[in-house]
């Protein structure tokens, strides 16, 4: 498929914009010299993924993403950053390793491998239009996937207790 054919679809223009924003934000997350900025850039990347979910007709996942991630997880991160007094000023020496090139090489290698595999596997396979299926998710979650659902709730409970126990100051 030619790029011109692809871009002719208006939705793909939207996709491209979101994708560029996400990649930019993601790069900022891993390179930013300010930890607070990095966390805020993560919000942008996650918001982008929520937008992609909407495009894919997964509006329930999208809103969960916004609520759980952007609402809760990022706030948690900000707390973590403050408690551990991570350097918020520009100080690349303390934030990054010296060995950036090997890491970049590994990352690019992984990307090349994954992109090659998916391109070989799916080529130009078209994606059906998304249909909102929040109701189906509810049905399936409490029917077919009820045991995993309960297990996950236990995982969360365990994490909750574990988090409290770990982070609590010793009584003495």
């Amino acid at each position: 498929m030619q790029f011109t054919d692809w871009i002719a679809d208006a939705r793909n223009i939207v996709f491209l914009v979101i994708a560029l924003a996400m990649v930019g934000a993601a790069v900022m997350v891993v390179t930013s010299r300010n930890v607070i900025h990095a966390a805020l850039m993560l919000v942008v990347a996650l918001a982008g993924s929520a937008a992609l979910f909407l495009m894919l007709g997964a509006e329930f996942v999208a809103w969960t993403m916004v609520l759980v991630y952007i609402g809760a997880v990022v706030v948690l991160f900000l707390f973590g950053i403050m408690i551990t007094r991570a350097p918020t000023k520009a100080d690349p020496v303390r934030l990054d390793h010296k060995h950036r090139w090997p890491a970049l090489l590994v990352a690019l290698g992984t990307f090349a491998a994954m992109a090659t595999v998916t391109t070989l596997a799916f080529e130009d396979a078209a994606l059906p239009d998304g249909v909102a299926r929040a109701g189906d998710i509810g049905d399936v979650l409490f029917d077919r996937f009820v045991i995993p659902f309960e297990v996950v709730s236990f995982v969360l409970l365990a994490a909750l207790i574990g988090g409290i126990v770990l982070a609590r100051k010793d009584p003495e």
Binding site: V106, G109, A113, T116, V117, L120
Partner: peptide, 20 residues
């Protein structure tokens, strides 16, 4: 830890390459 993680991904890539 990061060396280990790096090794993990290098290994994964090598597996993919080998598979291809």
């Amino acid at each position: 830890i990061q060396q280990y993680a790096g090794g993990l991904f290098v290994g994964a890539v090598l597996l993919v390459v080998g598979f291809l």
